[in-house]
Simulated scan of single mutants.
Amino acid sequence: MKAFLGMGLLGSNFVKAMIKKGDQVQVWNRTSAKATVLEAIGAKAFPDPAAAVQQADIVHLALKDDDAVNEVLALAAPGLKPGATIIDHTTTAVAGAIQRTQEWKERGFTYLHAPVFMGPLNALESTGLMLVSGDQEVIGRLQPVLAAMTGKVINFGPATGRAAGMKLTGNLFLVGLTAGLADALSLSRSLDIPLDNLVTLFDSWNPGVAIQARLQRMAGGSYDQPSWELSMARKDTRLFMDAVATGGGRLAVIPAIAAEMDRWISKGHGNEDWTVIGSGQYKDKG
């Protein structure tokens, strides 16, 4: 028997996939209608978390944040089967994941934080990525359960909370990517470039293929053989900002990047590779 607490878009589709594979699933959601609607496909909805987790060997969570996880688990605790396993797919703080892992172990339960890079369709189709870290015996035992839910499980080793950190890092990149695209759209509009031209550009030019090499260069500490000098990148950044200002638009992230470039240029790095601006995350604490 499985239980799933949190019937948002991700949780409800996880449940649909589980039921399709023959699992018995008990569900709960703060807005009860989101849980009861799943009874039509075979789930059993309950009015409170403690009732929903009774007799469940594995309890899955997909909630909003650390506070929600702590609150719902506190409500569920009286109904937990002795020795039950809690698998939390919520995006949380690293400290929260570490604390819950230890706390629930002391109470006689297994808690594994397993955040995902998956949308609702991925959850329904059991595709995407699931991240884990911590006790390797626990992860090995749960591997078949996790693998059935997703296309790939990435194990980041024995450090408890590392999966939470990797999820946050990935989400930060997605936020930055989307903000960068927003700025690219603003520049395009300011220059009267139609959207289909932008689509054509990215059909032929995929900057994503450079990520791994760029990351290694940024963290490598050697910037004296530039492929694009910082001063030249800053010149182009000025052109971006001037064009958008002339066109009456606004930029979300480029002005902050320009300020960071200026900081590094003022320290004498203008003739180095522009990736030097990322070295401060490792080398420069000033």
Rank of each mutant, 00 (worst) to 15 (best):
Q136W: 09
A51I: 01
K34G: 10
T36M: 08
D66A: 13
R238K: 15
A210G: 06
G134P: 14
D66S: 10
N197P: 00
M118D: 04
F117H: 11
I257F: 05
D262A: 01
G140D: 07
T127L: 04
K152V: 09
V145R: 01
G151W: 09
W274T: 06
D192N: 15
K167R: 09
V199H: 13
W28K: 08
N29F: 10
I41V: 15
V132F: 01
V199M: 14
M166I: 15
P144D: 03
L129W: 09
L124F: 12
E103H: 12
A256M: 06
K235V: 10
D284V: 12
V116L: 09
A258G: 15
L61K: 10
I86M: 09
V72S: 10
S12W: 02
G220S: 02
A163P: 11
E260D: 08
G270T: 03
R100F: 05
E71N: 10
H269D: 07
A35D: 07
G22T: 05
P115T: 02
T237F: 00
A243V: 04
M1V: 14
T92L: 06
V37N: 11
G161H: 02
G96A: 03
S126Q: 13
A233Q: 12
M118V: 05
E272M: 08
I211V: 14
L187M: 11
E260I: 07
W28S: 11
A68Q: 05
A45L: 14
K267N: 03
S222W: 01
A233R: 02
S126E: 07
G119T: 02
G161A: 06
P47V: 07
M130F: 00
T200F: 09
N171D: 06
V53K: 11
Q143W: 10
